[in-house]
Design a protein around this nucleic acid. Sequence first.
DNA 1: CAAAATTTGTGCGTATGTATA
DNA 2: GTATACATACGCACAAATTTT
Lengths: 237, 237
Amino acid sequence: MKQDRHDGARATVTAIKDLILAEHLKPGDPMPTEAELVDRLGVSRSSVREAVRTLVALDILEVRHGTGTFVGQLSLRPLVEGMVFRGVLLPGDDLSVLREVVEVRRGLDLSLAPRVVERLSGAETDDLRDCVEQMKALAAQHTTYPVQDRQFHLNLAERLGNALYGQLVAAFWDIHTTVAPRLGVVGQRDLDVTAAAHGAMLDAAVSGDLEAYRAAVEAHYDPILRVLDERHPAPVS
Amino acid sequence: MKQDRHDGARATVTAIKDLILAEHLKPGDPMPTEAELVDRLGVSRSSVREAVRTLVALDILEVRHGTGTFVGQLSLRPLVEGMVFRGVLLPGDDLSVLREVVEVRRGLDLSLAPRVVERLSGAETDDLRDCVEQMKALAAQHTTYPVQDRQFHLNLAERLGNALYGQLVAAFWDIHTTVAPRLGVVGQRDLDVTAAAHGAMLDAAVSGDLEAYRAAVEAHYDPILRVLDERHPAPVS
DNA sequence: CAAAATTTGTGCGTATGTATA
DNA sequence: GTATACATACGCACAAATTTT
């Protein structure tokens, strides 16, 4: 080892990670107690606790008060937390961070288009159909539908055989919907347009029309991008 | 408030975040000292330190020993660290995590294709040309070229007017190149193919040929995906 | 160059809150 | 309800790194 006695912080973090790998622990498995980690790693309680804090922040560990420490779910929650803070800290004159997030969301959906169409053409789509119907009904009452919106994109991503894609879609959905209200971007007026866009995406996908699906995705993100344009001209067309 | 005296951990984290927002601090700005945070937040030094650890893990804070604490760069480093650990912890029988990462990289590049072609057609591309030439030269000597590879994708993303896209591309490049060696995925035999694919991407972009660019992106990721296929059949075509 | 001041890093003891048996 | 095990919080003392005097 390069550092036996010193540099406890970083060394302890990697030591705990190595321990997880060496014991072949999986998400949800129990970790040794703090006291046992102190013994096995040869560092103080403070160092162990601070290292555990670091790993909890990354969702590599999970601590349940009074119960114990467990291997975390390795989710993208750290990405969401960091990007949300970035969004509110660096709004920019043109809400640039929020714009970039929306553009990434559109890019993710567009890059998934071929697979979505392939998977959904002629398939069972009751869950997605339900989401769209609820959205349209709520839009008619001038009510927002965040739950249905998120569920729609999640159900879509779940059918692709790539869990990471689904988690990225969900993560940027979370970032978007958390940052937008804090910056005063509401966009309540386009509820009908957005609900209809979801329906168009679904219709295009089940009928196997790739280009129509791509167009529907564009229409889905058009309202929010126009709201951002009203505040400041887009840096790109 | 539900927790006035207790729950110092989470409360202190948000208190520090609120402090950054209230003072309008930007990345790189100095933070109050630990002692001052103890006074202002009314919690113990241990709590402050653990909260700071959490924020350092998210790159919201940065600590320099003996100097002080500063606002962090809010980068995607936490995403990289988490995904790398996920990649080595959950390799799966089919190296599924690595496959998903590569597929996301391809998706990002494909979704950027229209913009790249628009921006590069007839533009100055000396830096990108240099990268490709160096790659080809190194490939001829059967040498890997990770630096040139990363630089190519970064230079590409930098021209798009969306910093987040560039950081995502760089982050998943880092994840890919960190995880692949640990799982024994080398792919040294396809150095020529990959170098040529970069050249083809550049040629297609400057000539404004969107479809040729898309094809070159596919060719770029084809070698690594074939290597993954050899170990286990792909879950999707 | 050297000493002092400042700031973060580490270790340890103790008291308290919380979940489980 | 009680006991036990565990995590959480606090405070102090000292070590290490950096900047300033």
